[in-house]
Design a protein around this nucleic acid. Structure first.
Length: 281
DNA sequence: CAATATACCTGGATGC
DNA sequence: TGCATCCAGGTATATT
């Protein structure tokens, strides 16, 4: 499911259920996700320890153990985490089970297997986390996410604005859905070259990004109480989109129809009238 | 260096 | 009903 808001809602939902709990058993499927699940490292570094807290960086969840080791989980395209009684039957595509000292179990289900599970052992955690952070772009809610930062990185880039925004090395957390919504809110055509975007437009991108992601987290937040069990994982189902998946429907601000084009292999939605192709800035 | 293509997977929707 | 085809919320890597 996950872009930044969904990962953040997952984190908020799991926090009260996992913090302070001890891991008493870990099992995993033998199928590989994007990389192999580090079975041995899980047993040696996570088993027996308590979960201190859960952080999020980009679309990664960082489960920080009391002893200093870190369990890293990325949900890929179809990953879902849920808490169920440990005795509950396994579902198809359950790939990781982390059993707690209260009889509950955290399960990772991922049909497409684009997810990732990593373990940073305590003595390497600082170095590994630094390397990890160095490959990622800024967080949309950090002070570094500014019009000046974006404009500088875009200065030599002719690629479509939308692909630039979705590059996780530039900004973390913006996937296909929110890239579409952000550009609509900022009134920028997804296909304009990144380097042609004006300072004023970048400012609109920054404010629209923060506003839209925050709103999505808030609306996902209403499902946190449903987090237990398989019934209600946070998702996109209750978010109201302006352009995503609305090709042919009418724009909410003008009489035009929402258009569709493929950019970088991803379906892209926009209003031809509210997001003019000619970039006059 | 920048842009594009491709690879990793399964499952649901669609069309014949 | 069965089968083929296309599409999906992400990211790393190879190729041009």
């Amino acid at each position: 499911m996950p872009e930044l808001p969904e990962v953040e809602v997952t984190r908020l939902g799991l926090l009260p259920l996992l913090c302070g709990r001890r891991v008493v058993k870990i099992s995993s499927s033998r199928k590989r996700l994007r990389s192999h699940i580090p079975r041995k490292k899980l047993q040696e570094n996570i088993l027996g320890d308590c979960i201190r807290t859960i952080d999020r960086r980009a679309k990664y969840l960082l489960f920080r153990m009391a002893g200093g080791a870190v369990l890293v989980i990325h949900l890929g395209m179809t990953g879902k985490l849920s808490m169920v009684p440990a005795r509950e039957a396994l579902a198809k595509h359950d790939h990781l089970r982390i059993r707690l000292d209260n009889g509950m179990e955290l399960r990772l289900n991922d049909s497409r297997r684009f997810g990732i599970v990593l373990v940073w052992p305590v003595h390497e955690a600082a170095t590994l986390e630094k390397d990890f952070a160095a490959r990622l772009g800024v967080e949309p809610f950090s002070r570094k996410f500014t019009a000046a930062y974006l404009r500088k990185l875009a200065a030599t880039r002719k690629l479509p604005m939308k692909n630039f925004l979705m590059d996780p090395r530039i900004v973390s957390g913006i996937g296909n859905i929110y890239a579409n919504e952000i550009l609509y809110a900022a009134g920028i055509h997804p296909q304009v070259p990144a380097q042609s975007v004006s300072e004023e437009q970048w400012r609109k991108v920054v404010t629209a990004t923060r506003r839209i992601l925050k709103k999505a987290i808030r609306s996902g937040g209403s499902t946190i109480s449903d987090f237990l069990g398989s019934s209600g994982n946070p998702g996109y189902f209750q978010i109201h989109f302006n352009v995503y998946n609305r090709a042919g429907e009418s724009c909410r601000q003008c009489p035009d129809q929402i258009g569709k084009v493929v950019l970088g292999g991803r379906t892209t939605f926009f209003c031809p009238c509210c997001q003019p192709r000619l970039n006059n800035g």
